[in-house]
Design a protein around this nucleic acid. Sequence first.
DNA 1: CCTAATAGGACTAAAATGGTCCTGAATGCA
DNA 2: TGCATTCAGGACCATTTTAGTCCTATTAGG
Lengths: 167, 167
Amino acid sequence: MVLNAERLPPMLRISKLTDYATVILARLAEEGAGQHTAVELAELTGIGLPTASKVLKGLQRGGLVASTRGARGGYTLARPAAAISAVDIIDAVEGPLGLTECASHPGQCGLEPSCRVGRSWQRVNVAIRRALGDVKLTQLIGREANAAPAADLAVVLGSRPGLRVRS
Amino acid sequence: MVLNAERLPPMLRISKLTDYATVILARLAEEGAGQHTAVELAELTGIGLPTASKVLKGLQRGGLVASTRGARGGYTLARPAAAISAVDIIDAVEGPLGLTECASHPGQCGLEPSCRVGRSWQRVNVAIRRALGDVKLTQLIGREANAAPAADLAVVLGSRPGLRVRS
DNA sequence: CCTAATAGGACTAAAATGGTCCTGAATGCA
DNA sequence: TGCATTCAGGACCATTTTAGTCCTATTAGG
């Protein structure tokens, strides 16, 4: 994988770094509970060391991997793969940036009067995040085809192999 | 609205242009079936004329609005608001760019061997698009609180006013 | 105390985004 | 016919993001 990102739809885009993160997490999940150094993971995945390193730091801050420093240090998953969701990964890698509504800076916008639209997009956004929260690393890896309950998105996710691809 | 985009999560981000598009479409939907020039719409929405114009061109190409040129020309919705979905808007404004899987250029990636991850993200992506296809302009405008059937995302969308905001 | 590792940033290059502007083509009307 | 109006299509530039590299701590083992 690691998608050649040139032609992905801007919205709903998965940044390369997020993708790297998934690949790396997949490794950590596969190789048992073993500890792996950044160097090892870089080699295993084929990602450049500096970049892999950067990603791992992000995952560390996000609490998805646990690290030990010094000689014989390395990284492990901080929790079972089934307890790590897609949003977790995205948030960890793409920063702690909040979901800022226009509401948080009222008046900044200028077009607010007649506009009921902004709120709706925010809700869409949040809804997607929720759905993404139900997609677990185990599913992303492909180990677990379908999640149990809720998970509107996850259901669709697990249900079919080849989906329609829009032009 | 027109969200002040500085602090939105990169992924799941709605580009400003898409937001503008929604605001403009909302106007076209509200003002009956009337025809409006780019100038009028710019004034009504508060968006700069060149920008509004650009957005309208995109919507035209995407088939969401119909245009007539020349004196007394202008724009109208190409179909009823209930038949225009969020994905339609996004696609129209953010380009005709396809959903390119690694699959379409096999071998480009280099890390393909051990990687089952890419596909999954693609499926997530497609799943979100599907869900977004069920969110109609009428809902974005707020005229119709909740859609009828299907629409996993739409259900969540219509259900609650103020949702949890992640840090 | 020396070596192996991670933590945290600073920094750069390349790409995407938002916005402006110009030129061309269609339409209506005097 | 010819002029004013209005959309179509891009070229273009400035700014912001993203990706990627590197340097300097800090922590742990032997």
